[in-house]
Design a binder for these strands. Structure first.
Lengths: 238, 238
DNA sequence: CGGTACGTTGAGTCATATCAACCATAGTGG
DNA sequence: CCACTATGGTTGATATGACTCAACGTACCG
């Protein structure tokens, strides 16, 4: 532990480390973002913004994990995606000029930079390769959303749970002992998969019985990735 | 009926009529698009492109309706969206530089313009308000996709069907007799809602029994919009 | 006239949601 | 320090929405 673990991260450095969107900015532009941004820290459970809020900027994650979710008619959460270091959230609302259509809550304590809308808009106007990168990002997310729609509409809960586990492996990785690095409650898992908490619990213990995973409380150890792939019926990636 | 109903539509005129994306282009740019584009006509059932194709441009719809869908593991279609005059499709693949993640098939005979990728990229690079509009478009679609994910994950088939009917009313409108202007097979309806054809049929006749709709083959007459809203549990729009 | 695609209905099944009870853990306040 | 409460996890019993399968009707088309 460093003594002063507390200074505001520099965008330049952060962009290099995390491969964030800002890599396509000029040094001057990075400098501007650095100057205009607001550094913030949050703890697990904190809410960055909520559905319906009008948002005056977007967030770039420096450390930690955030869940982005929608609240359904009956109050149930549907997790749309996670954001991890280098990723940005809330840019959708800023750009489409609509109020937030999702809420964002901290899953793992995090440090983020808040960047005012005007900066984003002006960067898009002045730096076309940044604009293009942003478009690519949005389009890529759109593609993922489309796949997810198809999955939820057509696959069983069992298939989806297996698929989500693999997706989490992909996004967050495993530690030396093959434990998923991200730790979620059963309810959160259910809110990704789009099912009831009890169903997740039952299916996870089936997976355990089939020696696909091992369960230690919230920690999930992946024992047989091939097996999960088989269950999930994942289609080949593009 | 004009005698020569066959000439290639001018983007300038089309953009005005349909309110397409191209309204934010300069006259010169419109001229360029006009020059570079390729006019094409398709009939119901024709396929514009298929999942997995590498695409060398995008399509701007001048007339007709197209369905954009993904094919699931077992070959079942999931309709992602429709495209009608003034809207563009396949821009996602062009921009994210990935192969098509959807297929596009004609629902109502249509006339479209095919515009090469390079044009799109160069417009983005040179006209920042066009880039911004495109970003807005992508972000808006992303918002809709997110809502749809939540709906499919949380609502019953009954609720979703009611919602989709309302959505079709919104997107395509009703004629003088309150018939939905877009005409879909039961299977297509099922492939939007994410259910089995039989379920759509059964629910539609329930709706009919409840005097919410009237059915004349493929034509659906909306009798009680409020009632459908109640069933669908639509949340207030932003 | 036979063929093909679409629509409809009924019956049976199964996956998943719901409801209820219970346990474990940790944090809180008296 | 202990009861108290909240939160999350687990399991069982039961209900049911929705899918599947199968049969049949209907309409259009060459």
């Amino acid at each position: 532990m460093k003594q002063h673990d507390f200074h505001v991260p520099l965008c330049e450095k952060c962009a290099l480390e995390t491969g964030s969107l800002f890599r396509s900015l000029t040094p001057d532009e990075v400098e501007m973002v650095n100057f205009e941004k607001d550094f913030r820290q949050y703890k697990r459970g904190d809410i960055l913004y909520q559905e319906g809020n009008r948002i005056s900027g977007f967030y770039c994650i420096h450390s930690g994990i955030i869940k982005v979710y929608k609240t359904g008619f009956d109050g149930k959460e549907q997790i749309i995606r996670f954001a991890k270091p280098g990723e940005i959230i809330a840019y959708r609302s800023v750009l489409s000029n609509e109020v937030a259509c999702t809420s964002a809550k901290v899953i793992e304590d995090c440090q983020v930079c808040f960047i005012p809308s005007e900066i984003l808009i002006s960067l898009i106007k002045t730096n076309s390769s940044f604009a293009l990168d942003l478009l690519k990002l949005a389009c890529h997310e759109l593609g993922e959303a489309n796949s997810f729609i198809t999955d939820i509409a057509q696959k069983t809960v069992r298939e989806r749970l297996a698929e989500i586990l693999l997706l989490l492996v992909n996004d967050f990785g495993l530690d030396e002992e093959n434990y998923l690095k991200i730790s979620l409650t059963r309810e959160e898992l259910a809110n990704i998969v789009g099912t009831a908490t009890e169903s997740v619990i039952r299916l996870l213990s089936e997976f355990k019985a089939d020696r696909l995973v091992e369960l230690n409380g919230r920690k999930i150890r992946i024992l047989n990735q091939k097996g999960l792939e088989k269950i999930s019926n994942v289609m080949e990636r593009n």
